[in-house]
Design a protein around this nucleic acid. Sequence first.
DNA 1: GTCTATAGGCAGATAGAC
DNA 2: GTCTATCTGCCTATAGAC
Lengths: 209, 209
Amino acid sequence: MVTKKGSSAGGSDAPTRGKDTAQRILDVAERLVQHRGFNAFSYADIAEELGITKASVHHHFAGKAELGEALISRYASTFAASLAAIDDEVPGAPAKLRAYTCLYADVLRHRRMCLCGMLAAEYQALPKAICDAIIVFFEDNETWLKGVLQQGRAERTLSFQGAPKEMARVLVSGLEGAMLVARLHAEPSYLQAVAASLLAGLRRRADEV
Amino acid sequence: MVTKKGSSAGGSDAPTRGKDTAQRILDVAERLVQHRGFNAFSYADIAEELGITKASVHHHFAGKAELGEALISRYASTFAASLAAIDDEVPGAPAKLRAYTCLYADVLRHRRMCLCGMLAAEYQALPKAICDAIIVFFEDNETWLKGVLQQGRAERTLSFQGAPKEMARVLVSGLEGAMLVARLHAEPSYLQAVAASLLAGLRRRADEV
DNA sequence: GTCTATAGGCAGATAGAC
DNA sequence: GTCTATCTGCCTATAGAC
């Protein structure tokens, strides 16, 4: 069979061109997990969509647990890179928070749940290695947000009660929950509106209308 | 307290005494769904725990879809009764909101996710009838919260920017997301702290410390 | 790296005896 | 209402040819 390894740009929505098989498997598996959950997709689903066999999938990822680990590892890396990019390119705590909420909106764009939010729901039914990785993901998010919130307080561009750590948890919870509920609705603006309300609560008094 | 315990939501972990088999099946199934998700438990799990056979479970609930519908129906009824009890017994919008957050805390007590929050995650992998019921559950919650928020504005006991409907969505999202993330942590206070922060943002200026 | 073929198990579900 | 027995199908996973 002729393998088509064209040079088309690897967009995240038509992800099966111009990448090696392992990456294509991860692309499909990621979408399936984000849509249905880890326990509601199979190797057969992946194989059928890519036009290969289940055995080929096993060649790249020995078992479902290993596939799950690879999935969350890649997702966490991408997310961490996005946070680093915000740190580098976006000045000011309020703008950083807005950029952070946009990361969530991007994930939700195709009715996907946050991969780690989905896995968090299924936590008690997942392999141990995956559970550990989920916890690290949320700790990293909390830590990054805590830093931005501290920066905002120091810059006097953000105003909020309580510890930065607590407010970081409010933001993570609010955004993950908004994704969860938004997927039930037809309106794509659900998450954006909740995010805007959450951030509005962090504005300085002087900025309030 | 407002909680009307005795049947399901936030119920004990040994709910199998003094009830008929159908209710015991629902008790076990509910806990399994809240812990693992709808697609990560089986009739065999239920049968084994109750000391009966899979066939007996099928006698009471013909298929998994029907079981799921019964599950969400009972859960929504219990939740609606709790909201009605708050309306009847708790005066003042701020106290009503605190009582509302306690409903979530009760569910989380045994590391359970909100049944409908869990099903919301699995939305794209569930039977249609269940999907419809989930949407109604969240609409009802939003509507009830909107009413309380309107009351609080009228009473001048709550102060917040934006429409009550938007703020209702912030609260639902924040609490569901907090449950989702809290289950990863050892600390049982995670949800309580997030809930307190959310409600703190609704206090009147005069009430702020 | 991909395939065919298959193992071994568990899933949801049903028939019919008691 | 509960049981035993069974069906059918899908699941994860593996062996071995090409």
